[in-house]
């Protein structure tokens, strides 16, 4: 508990340090948002229904968006909501609904033995390490305002755009190339070649299986045993 409190205080200090003015509102907002984020994150793990988990994830993402606003980063907050809450989790839900895995699960049953104690231990270790690093140096917080000061002389988006397209152009392009490769790869993996057209003079039902056409599941079963 003390560790958590310390973490909250540390992050609050970080938040106020980043924005430049430590006010009660900032602190209060941070506490509320942090509570939302944490309870959402716990909910994701604890909820028995996958759809509820996904909703809890949305809650967490919203809390993070609030934290971004708190750091005067409106653009990132908006993108957080549009991309993560608005698109990615919707896709999760889409898949959950489509595959019909939205049944309640007994989370007491453990598929991997020793998984939970290990998870708790690793998380505790990670958090302790994070807090230690935060105490010792500024590693966890990151250097304050790498791209430029957050004063309101230039807009947030302009600063972000300038730094992404000048200083960090190469990582940016590499990341986008990576995403394109991932998309192309996913399409290539998921794509099935067009279905076999049966020529009128050929009778495919006489147990003939062709290799050039990708085996549909039942055809495959016929050959492999």
């Amino acid at each position: 508990m003390a560790v958590v409190m310390h973490g909250v205080l540390l992050a609050a200090t970080a938040a106020t340090a980043a924005t430049g003015h430590a006010s009660l509102v900032d602190w209060g907002t941070f506490v509320v948002a942090a509570a939302i984020v944490l309870s959402g994150a716990i909910g994701v793990v604890v909820a028995r229904n996958p759809v509820h988990s996904a909703l809890m994830l949305v809650m967490t993402l919203f809390g993070i968006a609030v934290l971004f606003v708190l750091q005067r980063d409106d653009f990132l907050a908006a993108v957080q909501v549009i991309v993560y809450a608005g698109a990615i989790v919707v896709l999760f839900l889409f898949v959950i609904m489509f595959l019909g895995v939205d049944r309640e699960e007994n989370i007491a049953a453990e598929p991997l033995r020793g998984q939970r104690p290990l998870a708790v231990a690793l998380v505790a270790l990670g958090v302790t390490g994070l807090l230690l690093l935060g105490e010792v140096s500024k590693w966890t917080i990151g250097a304050l305002s790498v791209a430029g000061s957050t004063d309101s002389s230039t807009s947030n988006v302009a600063q972000l755009g300038t730094s992404v397209y000048t200083t960090y152009l190469f990582p940016f392009e590499v990341t986008s190339a990576l995403l394109v490769i991932a998309v192309v790869g996913a399409v290539a993996l998921a794509r099935r070649p067009p279905a076999v057209v049966t020529a009128p003079d050929l009778d495919l039902d006489d147990g003939l299986v062709d290799e050039s056409a990708p085996a549909t599941d039942d055809a495959h079963q016929e050959v492999t045993p």
Partner: peptide, 25 residues
């Protein structure tokens, strides 16, 4: 895509050998 749909005919002939047992024949 259209030409590929015809290809299986070739594959059929290669597979249709007496020494390859299949389930339904």
């Amino acid at each position: 895509g259209e030409t590929r749909a015809i290809l299986p005919q070739v594959g059929l002939r290669l597979w249709n050998r007496p020494d390859v047992p299949t389930a339904s024949s």
